[in-house]
Simulated scan of single mutants.
Amino acid sequence: MNIPDFRVEPAHFRADHDDLLIIFNVNKKPNDAPDSAADIINPLSIYVIARDNQHQPVGAGELTSAGTIEGLAVIPKWHNQGVELALLTALIDKAAKSGLTEIKAQAVESHKALFEGLNFRAVTQNEPGIYSLSMTQAPVSQPSSRPNPKPAPESIEPVKMESLMAIMEASIQLISSARRQICIISKDLEWPLYAQSAVIEALKSFAIDNRNSLVMILIQDPNALNGRSHPLIDLAQRLPSSIQLRTPTEMEDLGYPSAFLLSDQRGYLFRLNNDQAKGDWSPCLPSRTKQLAELFERLWQRARPCSEFRALNL
């Protein structure tokens, strides 16, 4: 059976905690006790995870800070579908970007051909199954399903948006282009936009892939979310150092009618009315972005942390 519809994305030891545990325990025998989180999840490691088109985890890989591939696991029905190769290639790419000069792995028998096909070589005959890869011999990584954004020119004229789909596509493009900071103001993190998996995945990738990145979100009516699970709130609780939530305290700020999203690459998306799927955006329009960034900074400084959504660390 061929099941090609999957993707590989960066994983975080908190944000993807439960899914990583499921995958890394998948090869346990029925009578074996599953390993605990302390035995499996290492906050210092780099993780990647494969998901199907229903966002369910189907495989995962781990690269330790010492440059060793400790985990490479795929659920049985996804074996021989290319998931192992995609995970391993992603880990090699992560190692190269981290500045490692060599990575090692202990390959099980079924993975030996896979490792050898990616230029891994056996270390010594005295250490069967131990393979090493010099990063100077690393293969070119496979194209990502999330292409790197092209460098933005100095200024791009704004484009009108008349539909929710257009707003979502523009939002994802702005998030994907950002490097250090994203600013969002929304009345109640409207579900048709900020609860959609494509937007959530873009924000998670931004937070994990970019060191010292920060998503700053102003929610004008957090009480509208009480008692209702929201994927973006859940992500913020799992990545509290990368995603911060505040709510206005001044009546003028609470009544601000518009919504917008800003990228530190001088791009913006603006909707005059938070309740309407109409607005304009540009991937790079410095004058307009600066104006909105100054407004956001004033609102942010007057706002308070959203204690309504505070969660215990895992």
Rank of each mutant, 00 (worst) to 15 (best):
P151M: 06
S229W: 12
I185W: 01
V159F: 15
I233S: 02
I233M: 02
A236I: 03
Q220H: 06
S242E: 11
L235N: 00
L164E: 13
S242Q: 14
I167G: 00
S163W: 09
S229T: 14
N210T: 07
E169S: 09
L214C: 12
I175Q: 01
Q181R: 14
I208L: 07
P143A: 08
L245T: 06
L232K: 07
R180I: 12
V159W: 12
S144Y: 04
S144F: 03
R246Q: 11
I184D: 01
I243K: 01
N210R: 11
S155K: 12
V199A: 04
I167F: 01
A170T: 07
P153A: 15
R228M: 11
P151F: 05
L189E: 05
M251S: 07
H230T: 06
S155G: 05
I243G: 00
L189S: 08
E169A: 10
R179Y: 10
V159A: 15
I219M: 05
K187F: 03
T249K: 10
P222C: 12
A195M: 10
E157T: 14
K150G: 06
A166C: 06
V159N: 15
P248T: 05
P192M: 04
I185Y: 00
L235E: 00
T247N: 09
F206T: 08
D209K: 12
M251F: 04
Q220K: 13
A224G: 11
E169G: 04
C183F: 07
P248N: 03
M216P: 02
E162C: 12
R179H: 14
A198Q: 08
Q220Y: 01
R228F: 11
D209G: 04
L174R: 03
S241V: 03
I156R: 14
P151H: 08
K150L: 14
L214H: 08
L203Q: 04
V215W: 00
P143K: 10
D221L: 06
P240S: 11
N210A: 07
M165W: 12
V159Q: 15
N212F: 10
A207Y: 01
